[in-house]
Simulated assay, not measured.
Amino acid sequence: MMRITLFILTNLSIILFLKLILIIMGIKINSIYMVMTVLFSFIGSLISLIMSKWITLKYINGKIIKIPKNEKENILINIIKKQANITKIKTPTMVIYDSSEINAFATGINKNSSIIALSTELINRMKYEEIEAVIAHEISHISNGDMITMTLLQGIMNTIVFFLSNIISQIFLTTIIQNKEESRNNKYLYFLISFIIELTFGLIASIIIMWFSRTREFRADAGSAKIVGKNKMLSVLYKMKEEKNNNIINNKLINTFLIYGKSKSFFNLFMTHPSIDKRIKALKENLYY
């Protein structure tokens, strides 16, 4: 609740500050259009988070496990319960889904309403200690509030991008066309300039959001190490590195869901996960404890 309150206050502060700049500079933007766009920008982010569990379950065709049907499911549920107690969060719902990929992820609106999804390949191929570490990684994401923080950051970035693009578009258009009234009436040119600027700022905002996403992975690795021990989490990372190097994993899922990153590339700026080598280095050197 505190994160959402801060999110709303931050967005209101941004709106008031940028609106003041507009007034000082004599730039007028339709108030109804402005309010509706801002509402859609961050309320849309919250709605997507609220629906994340439902959307995810539909996408992966996952099976919710409330009552274990075999010993393996019982062991997994007990691991989740134990780690939830350690981190003092409500026990997440366990979901298992069929996949030929070693994969796991967590989602949900907050730490007391979340799910942890495990692929059948992960369950079948990883050792008990490694599964413990993977679950602890996801538990850390939940206890750190990573899902809601990511959503709030997205909403704030949307607000900033919208206002800055409108301010700069108006300034740029007024510079080209000296008559202010004429510049406001030139809707097509304004739309084109605004679109280009929004695209540019949107890319910059994406880099910031993805940077945060990569940072939270380091923290989740460190959180896993605290819960089950560093060696267990390192074992998972080394296994993922081996899988990747042997070209066993063929990624067909949304990158946010994966527990490993990609190799060095400029496009890493837009990756949700850091490379496995960086994660191993950070964990060994205790960079995010």
Results as ranks from 00 to 15, higher is better:
190 Y>I: 04
281 K>C: 05
146 D>S: 02
212 F>Y: 10
123 I>E: 09
256 T>H: 10
73 E>M: 05
9 L>D: 01
187 K>Y: 10
19 K>T: 02
267 F>T: 13
44 G>R: 02
193 I>Y: 12
7 F>G: 00
202 G>D: 05
115 I>S: 05
151 T>G: 07
17 F>Y: 11
29 I>G: 07
33 Y>I: 06
259 I>E: 12
152 L>E: 01
208 I>V: 15
280 I>M: 11
164 L>G: 14
44 G>H: 00
135 I>P: 07
235 S>E: 05
116 I>Q: 01
113 S>I: 09
175 T>H: 14
189 L>G: 07
13 S>R: 02
186 N>F: 13
5 T>M: 11
203 L>A: 04
69 K>M: 04
169 S>K: 10
176 I>F: 09
75 I>L: 14
191 F>T: 10
198 E>D: 07
113 S>E: 01
74 N>D: 08
119 S>L: 08
125 R>V: 02
235 S>K: 05
70 N>L: 10
96 I>D: 05
194 S>H: 13
58 K>P: 06
40 F>T: 01
184 R>I: 13
146 D>E: 05
117 A>W: 02
117 A>D: 08
240 M>F: 09
76 L>P: 11
79 I>A: 00
47 I>K: 03
112 N>P: 01
122 L>S: 05
280 I>D: 06
88 K>C: 11
108 G>H: 09
90 K>T: 13
87 T>D: 09
141 H>Q: 04
239 K>H: 11
239 K>W: 08
37 T>Y: 02
94 M>D: 04
252 K>W: 02
165 S>E: 04
131 I>N: 14
63 K>A: 06
223 G>N: 08
159 T>D: 03
262 K>A: 09
207 I>D: 00
178 Q>D: 05
59 Y>H: 09
236 V>E: 10
31 S>H: 04
92 P>L: 06
82 K>L: 07
228 V>T: 12
245 N>Y: 03
246 N>L: 08
176 I>W: 00
149 T>M: 01
35 V>D: 07
269 L>D: 00
61 N>C: 10
249 I>P: 05
275 S>W: 06
151 T>N: 03
261 G>Y: 04
85 N>D: 15
166 N>F: 10
160 I>Q: 08
269 L>P: 02
252 K>R: 13
80 I>S: 00
149 T>W: 00
198 E>V: 10
190 Y>C: 06
257 F>I: 11
225 A>K: 04
288 Y>D: 13
75 I>S: 12
33 Y>H: 10
34 M>P: 05
58 K>S: 15
116 I>H: 09
264 K>F: 13
28 K>P: 05
152 L>P: 03
154 Q>T: 14
109 I>M: 00
26 G>M: 13
263 S>A: 12
146 D>K: 03
39 L>S: 15
142 I>H: 01
244 K>F: 07
192 L>W: 12
244 K>M: 12
66 K>D: 15
129 E>D: 15
189 L>N: 06
205 A>N: 09
210 M>N: 15
49 L>D: 11
253 L>A: 00
82 K>W: 01
34 M>V: 01
155 G>L: 01
247 N>E: 11
140 S>R: 04
228 V>G: 14
40 F>I: 07
24 I>V: 14
186 N>I: 07
216 R>I: 08
56 T>A: 15
22 L>M: 13
278 K>R: 14
